[in-house]
Design a protein around this nucleic acid. Structure first.
Lengths: 208, 208
DNA sequence: TAGATTGTTAATCGATTAACAATC
DNA sequence: TAGATTGTTAATCGATTAACAATC
């Protein structure tokens, strides 16, 4: 039951299972590990092991009660209270994330937005008014926002990161293609959009 | 020298090294594995091993000539000719990818865009006119586009995928949070934006 | 009871790290 | 020559898969 015992890779797959469970028609049906495995394209033993790490409500022959399993995964991923997050950089990527419907199902709540562009500050995205980037520290500190998302150009990413850290943000999700420096107690998770490109191009090279 | 010998994880890290190399001031300086490791936040032995898989131009004491190393990595990642790619779904995420400057450095060339929204078709993004989604098959087939990016809502993702496959697309980069079915010779690479969420929330849970 | 599914233990596999040798 | 760095071989570590036992 220890929180830390869940392996990182399991933690990365759980959101995908949750996505699938959310997509099922509501109500109180049942799902088996194999069913989930087929839906997300993984090995079914792996799914079973992942689920065993967060739920003890699986029943032989029956599988898992959909609603119970959903709650068990959410309990591990989302915690009890919704977490506020701020987005710095309201270009297309930032706006896409702000409007992303899926986050709510993971206990994340869009709470603040920042940009330096004068024509953006004051506008509203996803029900949130965009502040000037100079206000990152003040606003995030006041609202005690624990999660920051960085979607600014790489050259200013470290500056934005510093402001978020000063504001007391504990976790930073970095979409800028640079390595960020932060104190050890602040978690930096890199999104690394380009990381997949090598896989794509290799497949094409092999086709020849 | 065999193409297939490069491990998948190495292939995922190479783009990050290339990003760093591109960020260095031009000219003919030198870089060491340790230098790259510090810049991207990895173990330096790992960087050295990754580089050894794609380049044989490292020199003791000197390190790598920046330009040569850049070329060696690019040769493995990008191939010789630029690859055309199409984006289906020109919402904020699709537009963000269309305008992403980094792809060109990986040998990828934005060549076609599709959407179903009437107010988008006919408009221009990144120098490319947006076609209606009905034209996916015709346009991609004619232009012999090998790479498709899916940034449409999950409910229509499979339909779009089918159209791309019919058009002869070999590789699909899927940003929709659903599993896609395709023939074995078509590579589906899932972007899984939500996969990181578990890591973020666990760090916060531990802070308490 | 028979069968399907979970959960666990063992075996395999691959990736990372450490130690060392080679070389400029 | 001495020192720094590459590259390789060995050791550790963790993750995935396979086989089996447990149970509804």
């Amino acid at each position: 039951m220890q929180d830390n015992g869940v392996p990182v890779n399991t933690l990365r797959r759980l959101p995908l299972y949750l996505n699938y469970l959310h997509s099922l028609p509501g109500g109180a049906g049942h799902v088996s590990a194999r069913q989930i495995a087929q839906a997300v394209g993984f090995n079914d033993v792996q799914v079973r092991k992942d689920l065993a790490a967060v739920s003890h409500h699986g029943r032989p022959k029956t599988g898992y009660e959909t609603r119970v399993l959903t709650k068990d995964i959410e309990a591990r991923l989302a915690g009890k209270n919704p977490l506020d997050f701020a987005i710095a950089g309201m270009g297309h990527l930032g706006t896409a994330l702000a409007q992303h419907q899926g986050f709510a199902g993971f206990g994340l709540h869009f709470a603040a937005a920042f940009d330096i562009a004068p024509h953006l500050t004051g506008r509203t995205v996803g029900g949130i008014t965009i502040h000037h980037a100079d206000e990152i520290k003040t606003v995030c500190q006041k609202a005690k926002i624990p999660v920051g998302i960085i979607t600014v150009p790489p050259v200013v990413a470290q500056t934005v990161c510093d402001a978020l850290v000063q504001a007391g943000v504990q976790v930073i999700w970095n979409f800028a293609p640079v390595h960020l420096n932060a104190p050890d107690d602040v978690l930096i998770e890199n999104a690394n959009i380009v990381a997949s490109l090598g896989i794509l191009t290799r497949h094409l090279a092999q086709q020849i």
